[in-house]
Amino acid sequence: MVSYDKYIQGLKKSAPPVDYNQLYHQIEQKAARRSFLIVQLAAPLLVIAVLFIVALPAADYFSSSQDDGGALVSFVVQDESGGRALENFIFEN
C-alpha cells in the first residue's frame, strides 16, 4: 500500500516536461485557422443559399408563365385547326 501511495504521489508531483508557451502559440494558431476554415466553408454555402432563394421564385415565375402560354397556344391551334371536327364538316358538306 505504501508503494502505491508513493507512486500516486510521484504522479501528482511530476509530469513529463513541456513547453507551455510554445503549445499556447500552437493552440492560438490552430484556433485561428479553424475559424478561417469555417468562414471559407460557410461563405460559398451562403452564396449558394442566397442564389437559391433568389433564383427559385424567378424560375417558378418564368416556367409557369411559359407553360400557360404553351398550353393556351396549343389549345387555340387544336381548336381552330379543328382536326376531326373540321374533317367531319368538310365531308358532311
Binding site: 504522479l11 501528482k12 509530469a15 513529463p16 513541456v18 507551455y20 503549445l23 499556447y24 500552437q26 493552440i27 490552430k30 484556433a31 479553424r34
Partner: peptide, 24 residues
Amino acid sequence: VWRIASRYVFDREDREDLFQEVWL
C-alpha cells in the same frame, strides 16, 4: 490539464496533441 493528458496517453506527440485538443 497537462497532468491528465500526459498520464492518459504515453507518446510525446499524442500527449501534446491531446493537450491542444482540450484547449481548442
